[in-house]
Every structure is written in structure tokens, then in C-alpha cells.
Design a protein around this nucleic acid. Structure first.
Lengths: 140, 140
DNA sequence: GTGTTTGCAAAGTGTTTGCAATTTA
DNA sequence: TAAATTGCAAACACTTTGCAAACAC
């Protein structure tokens, strides 16, 4: 029989975010959150949905990713002009970006602070400090 | 009479990069490098060129920015999925990004290192460590 | 039933490309 | 004059939008 816990978790997540638990949102929620930390683009999530027989349009995938981001369930990571990545890990952390393959992953461990950061300019507040380590894949 | 030094500097820069000093490249080079550090998008540079009566197509602006980047005269900074920024300061440094206005500027001072960065995964080399401090403009 | 959500197709944005005409060396 | 560069217009990739039909409560 099918696992029930993940379904209820997805349901709870959506209710907490004040989003109606539609078939599409439940399915996308499970694809995103049932399997640990993920870094995913809209196109890839859409493909995964279709591959698991979830009928959902690309427009809905985009809408859902933005709704989840606004609700604090996802964090958008900018590493590539032209594509948006969404990260299921919303706690502060940094990223490795594999330039050739376009893969994005968390930097493990506590590699975390930036030294000597000056105060933000007057009239501004820091929204986030984004650290991306760009990697060249040498294949050896 | 017109300043001659900047013209010769632009000429030298292009020759050093093995790029023919065409009217367009000379003009764009001067717009980019004659006035200190700049962070600029293709569209903005194109507008500036037209505003100073330099006839150049947007396609050529894109080509030129990429050629300059490949030659090491510019550095591309990714802060916005959807637009590319080019930085005339190619030395390692970090950025403030003003999210509302889309302005990008260097973080002054020596605010430079990231603590405890782990080694890159096997089969990869670090290309760059990009630090972007995203700012919300509060207006007070 | 009422308001929300979805899917489609069209439109939008920033960028790249193919190729003939122009320019540089 | 041979090779590099330019400009145009079309093509592109990704994302957003408008609106009628479908769905959740």
C-alpha cells in the first residue's frame, strides 16, 4: 500500500502556507520535499512531474514555485542568468555550482561566514548574503 | 581640443587583447573604462552609446562585452536571472546588489575572505567565489 | 454557489545567431 | 583583397500573463 505519511505532510505544508491543496500542488510538493534537499529548475520539475504521471502545466509549475517561495518553503538561488533555481533548504548556507553540467548543490559543513563584511549602505537592509563557489569540472 | 590619452589607452587595450580597434570597440571601450569602476548591462551600455552619438547595434554590444570578458578586460557578475552584468573591475571582490533599483556596486574595503571553505569536490577546480550581498532599499 | 486555481496559447524579455554588407590591415 | 567585424532580422530560451474552464470549499 501507498505511504500515507508523506501525503499528510504535504497537506499540512500547504495548509500552513494558506494554499489550497490541489492535486498539482500536492504532487509538486511531494516531488520537492519528500526526498531531502533539492535544487531544481522549473523545467526539470515539470519533466519530473510528467515522468511520474502527474499532469501539470509548465505555467502552474512556475506559479507554484513562486507561491512556495513567497510562503518561505523554497529559496530562489541566482547562479545563472537565464534560469532560476529553487532550493528546498531555506536555512542560510552556501552553494557549489558546477558550471558545465548546471548542477547546484549545498556546500557541506559549517563553511558559513564572510569576514569583515561592512555595514550595509544607509537606507538599506541586508536581505541575504549569497555565496556561490563556481566549479570547473575537469573530469579527473 | 579632445583628450588624446584616453584614446590611446583604448587603442592599446584593444591591441593587447588582439581585437581590431574598430570604431565601435573603441567607443565602447572608452564608455566602459574611462570613468572608473562600472557595473553595466548590455542594454544600458547600448543606450549610453546611442546617447553619445555612437552608432552601434545591440548585437555588437553583446559581442563586444563577451569578447572583452574572454580577453579578461571584464568580469561577468550573475545577480539577476534574466540580465547579465559586466564589471570593469576584474580583481577579486564582492558586491552589493540593490534589488529594487537593480544597481550593482563593489563592496568597499577588504571584506574579502570566506571562512572555512571546504576543498572543491574531486574532479573540480574553483573558478571563482562569488559573494553577493542583496540589499533591500528602505528609503530611510 | 463563490472564489481560487489551472491550462493554454500568446506575449514578453533578454540574448544569440546567420548571413550579406562593410571595414580593417 | 583576404579576413575580421558589423548590423539586421529572425530565432531562441526561459518566464509571465490573460482569460475561460475546472476545481475546492
Amino acid at each position: 500500500m501507498e505511504q500515507q505519511r508523506p501525503y499528510f505532510e504535504a497537506l499540512t505544508r500547504l495548509r500552513a502556507a494558506n494554499l489550497r491543496p490541489t492535486r498539482q500542488r500536492l504532487a509538486l510538493s511531494r516531488l520537492l520535499f519528500d526526498n531531502g534537499d533539492r535544487h531544481i529548475t522549473a523545467e526539470v520539475l515539470h519533466s519530473e512531474a510528467l515522468a511520474s504521471n502527474v499532469r501539470v502545466s509548465l505555467a502552474t509549475v512556475y506559479n507554484t514555485l513562486h507561491q512556495f517561495t513567497k510562503a518561505g518553503l523554497l529559496r530562489e538561488v541566482v547562479v545563472d542568468s537565464g534560469r532560476s533555481y529553487f532550493d528546498t533548504n531555506t536555512t542560510p548556507h552556501h552553494h557549489f555550482f558546477f558550471e558545465k553540467s548546471g548542477r547546484l548543490e549545498d556546500i557541506p559543513g559549517l563553511s558559513y561566514t564572510v569576514n569583515d563584511l561592512p555595514p550595509p549602505p544607509p537606507g538599506t537592509l541586508i536581505d541575504s548574503v549569497d555565496v556561490v563557489v563556481r566549479l570547473r569540472e575537469t573530469g579527473n
